[in-house]
Amino acid sequence: MFIAGCSIDDQVLLAKVTWLENASGTGTAMAVESFGFHVSTFPIDRGLTVGVTRRVYFFPGEASSLQRDWRDFVAADHRLRPTDERPPPGAAPVAVLAASAALEVQAGSLGGAIRLGLGKQATLLLPSDGSTAVIIRCNDRGDSPSFALSEILP
């Protein structure tokens, strides 16, 4: 459902925002649906969207910094479910899935872009240091996404 309005990250006036979290606390997500203006200050897609957009931002969870055994991590169920919990202030998403019918002006970590029309973008952006594992499974069919990020025992 789209509601007319505008949004800045998760600060919305009349947009719909849904929060999601996996059971292990290693991943959260924020789904934003807005019609009008959407402003993102996240490094991954910093910019302005004028039109209709649906974006799902994926964040590390509060348990992501704990080191885990690789096999336990990859075998776990990481499906995201609705929650009232939110990432800590200042948390930056590591992935975004976006679908828009809009004018977009972006200046994110991967460069700048100006788009006019229908667009669909998916980006996963990870730091180049550390010993990290990420699982992301998402689509725009409406299926529940899976996401988790964790430090892994070397």
Partner: peptide, 27 residues
């Protein structure tokens, strides 16, 4: 846009599809 966009020192996986006009600038 090019001035605001920073250089990329990250591991990145990207998919993008557009019907319309698309202008991109590599940082």
């Amino acid at each position: 846009v090019a001035a605001i966009a920073g250089g990329c020192n990250h591991l990145a996986y990207v998919h993008s599809a557009v019907v319309g006009v698309d202008v991109t600038v590599a940082p």
